[in-house]
C-alpha cells in the first residue's frame, strides 16, 4: 500500500490556550493507482488531512507511513525531499509564482532535486503537453485563465513523476465547465497509472473517482467504493 494512516490526530493550538481538534482519529489505507475523493462539510478536516498527506504539515499524534517509510518522525529537510520526490500537490488557489512563466513554474520541483537546466526544460515541456498547454509555455500566470492556471499547477505536480497526486479542491475556484475539463485531466492521469487523492464538495466531481471518503468533525464518517 502507498499510504497508511494509523490513529492520526491533529490539534491546532490557538494562542497556546484554545485547542481545536481538527482530526480526531484517522485510520486510512490508500493503495497504488487508486483514485480517491475526500468529501465532507466545511471545517470537517479535509484540508488538514490533505496537508498531512502532502507532508506540508505534521500530525500531532499517530503514524503515517508513505511508500514504506515513516513520515511521522522525519526532519524538515527529509520532509522537503519527500514532498519533492513523492508528492505532487495541486492547490485550490493554484499557488503559481506570479513573475515566472508557465514553463519556469513547472520546472520548479526539478530545481530542488538538482536536474540540469536542459533536462528540466525538456521534462517541463512534456508535462505541459500532457495538460494541453504546450502553446502557453511563455505566458505568465496573469496572462492565463483560471483553468489554464490550474493546468499549469497540475503539470507542475506531475513533472517529477510523484508517487501520488494530491489536490485540495482543485476546481473550487473554477466554473463548472472548466472544472469538468480539469477532472478529465485527472482521469487521464489516473488511466496512465497515477495515484490521485482529491478533495471536493461537489458530488458530480466526486463521481469521477473510484472511492469516496466522507469526513465529519475530524473523523471518517464513511468510506465507500463508487461503481
Amino acid at each position: 500500500m502507498l499510504i497508511d494512516l494509523k490513529d492520526i490526530k491533529k490539534i491546532y493550538e490557538i494562542g497556546g490556550t484554545v485547542k481545536v481538534p481538527a482530526l480526531k482519529s484517522i485510520n486510512l489505507v490508500i493503495g497504488k493507482n487508486e483514485y480517491v475523493a475526500i468529501m465532507g462539510p466545511s471545517g470537517s478536516g479535509k484540508s488538514t488531512l490533505m496537508n498531512i498527506l502532502g507532508c506540508l504539515d505534521t500530525a500531532s499524534e499517530g503514524i503515517y507511513m508513505l511508500n514504506g517509510s515513516n513520515v511521522s518522525d522525519m526532519t524538515d529537510d527529509e520532509l522537503a525531499e519527500i514532498r519533492n520526490r513523492e508528492i505532487g500537490f495541486v492547490f485550490q488557489t493554484f499557488n503559481l509564482l506570479p513573475r515566472a512563466n508557465a514553463l519556469h513554474n513547472v520546472e520548479l520541483p526539478l530545481i530542488y532535486n538538482g536536474t540540469s537546466s536542459t533536462q528540466r526544460k525538456k521534462q517541463a515541456k512534456e508535462a505541459l503537453e500532457k495538460v494541453g498547454l504546450a502553446d502557453r509555455m511563455d505566458h505568465k500566470p496573469n496572462e492565463l485563465s483560471g483553468g489554464q492556471r490550474q493546468r499549469v499547477a497540475i503539470a507542475r505536480a506531475l513533472v517529477n513523476n510523484p508517487s501520488i497526486i494530491l489536490a485540495d479542491e482543485p476546481t473550487g475556484n473554477l466554473d463548472s465547465k472548466t472544472g469538468e475539463e480539469i477532472m478529465e485531466i485527472f482521469e487521464t492521469l489516473h488511466d496512465a497509472g497515477n495515484t490521485i487523492v482529491l478533495v471536493t464538495h461537489e458530488e458530480y466531481i466526486a463521481e469521477h473517482s473510484d472511492r469516496i471518503i466522507r469526513l465529519r468533525d475530524g473523523l471518517v464518517e464513511r468510506d465507500e467504493s463508487v461503481n
Binding site: A80, N95, P109, R156
Partner: peptide
Amino acid sequence: TREIGVRKALGARNHD
C-alpha cells in the same frame, strides 16, 4: 512569504 511557501511545498529545503 507565499513564494517561499510554494518553493518549500515543492521541495525546497531550509538551506535552499
